[in-house]
């Protein structure tokens, strides 16, 4: 009985972590689908989004949930600026050159966060919350908000991808680049919108992650590996798979703490990813997005 309660409790944490990972993994997957490279600065984009949201709160005294749209807008603009100043110039060479470039961009972003915010640890206002007791389970109110916020963001993204012309054009480019370009899809504009969305989703993950724990300059880098794992398990280049991948990785990471040191959580995500890469290199979920 006790183990069952424990398992359910960890599953709740897993779904919360999975919601955060999903937002990051969708961005990684979309960027890979359109630009064909693994974006290694995505973790640090997550960090930048969280700190941008916090900065907005500090400057305006707005209610705390304003951090989410403010951070998303900030990180979206920063992502587009990075693409226009750096990635755009090396896009026509091998995609792998973009990969090493993004590794450097990630370090630059992290250093800027360290310079602007210093080594202090920040957290969003709200303080320690008294959990709700439902049956034997403790539910932290923030966890409910994190899940709902992620759900709303993913739903809006789904409507955008399936109902708008731009969204459909993005899916077409990811499916078959040459065919899409022949039909006259404006590639540069679609790439820009991909970065806007990827940056906004990363910031969403960052603000929610900050709400769950605290803000540190390495918060995003530390969840980059689980985010990649979620994207790969879901089939990289397929944002809808990233949702399932995110949940699976989030649940596995939290439930593993039953029998492993919690500091090994990223390693659990990584092992699942390697297993999927060997057994099913295209992800465990079928179908295109």
């Amino acid at each position: 009985m006790y183990i069952l309660v424990e398992l359910l409790q960890l599953s709740i944490y897993g779904i919360v972590l999975g919601s955060i990972l999903t937002l990051g993994a969708i961005g990684v997957s979309m960027i890979f689908g359109i630009l064909r490279f693994a974006h290694f600065a995505h973790g640090d984009l997550i960090t930048v989004g969280a700190y941008t949201g916090l900065g907005f709160l500090m400057m305006t005294n707005a209610p705390f949930w304003f951090a989410l749209p403010a951070g998303m807008a900030g990180a979206a603009i920063i992502a587009v600026l990075i693409d226009q100043t750096v990635y755009k110039r090396i896009r026509r060479r091998q995609p792998v050159i973009l990969l090493i470039s993004s590794f450097g961009i990630g370090l630059i972003l992290r250093s800027f966060v360290q310079i602007i915010w210093g080594p202090h640890v920040f957290s969003f206002p709200g303080g320690i919350q008294r959990p709700w007791l439902v049956w034997e389970l403790a539910i932290i109110p923030n966890h409910v908000w994190i899940f709902l916020a992620a759900l709303i963001i993913v739903t809006l993204l789904h409507l955008f991808l399936t109902r708008t012309r731009v969204g459909k054009a993005m899916r077409a480019m990811s499916d078959n680049m040459d065919l899409a370009l022949i039909t006259g899809i404006p590639a540069e504009r679609i790439i820009m919108i991909t970065w806007l969305l990827g940056g906004a989703l990363a910031a969403g993950a960052g603000v929610l992650l900050g709400l769950d724990s605290r803000l540190t300059p390495t918060m995003g880098w530390n969840i980059l590996l689980p985010v990649f794992a979620a994207a790969i398990v879901g089939g990289i280049g397929r944002p809808y798979g990233a949702i399932a991948g995110g949940m699976l990785i989030g649940l596995a990471m939290e439930i593993s703490t039953l029998f492993l040191e919690p500091s090994y959580k990223p390693a659990v995500a990584f092992l699942i990813m390697v297993a999927v890469l060997i057994a099913r290199p295209h992800g465990i979920f079928k179908g295109a997005w």
């Binding site: 890979f32 693994a38 995609p95 990969l99 590996l225 990813m273 890469l277």
Partner: peptide, 13 residues
């Protein structure tokens, strides 16, 4: 290539 990159940094971490 991309998968190898992710796998190697995963092993290092």
């Amino acid at each position: 290539t991309d998968y190898l990159a992710i796998a190697t940094i995963g092993i290092a971490e």
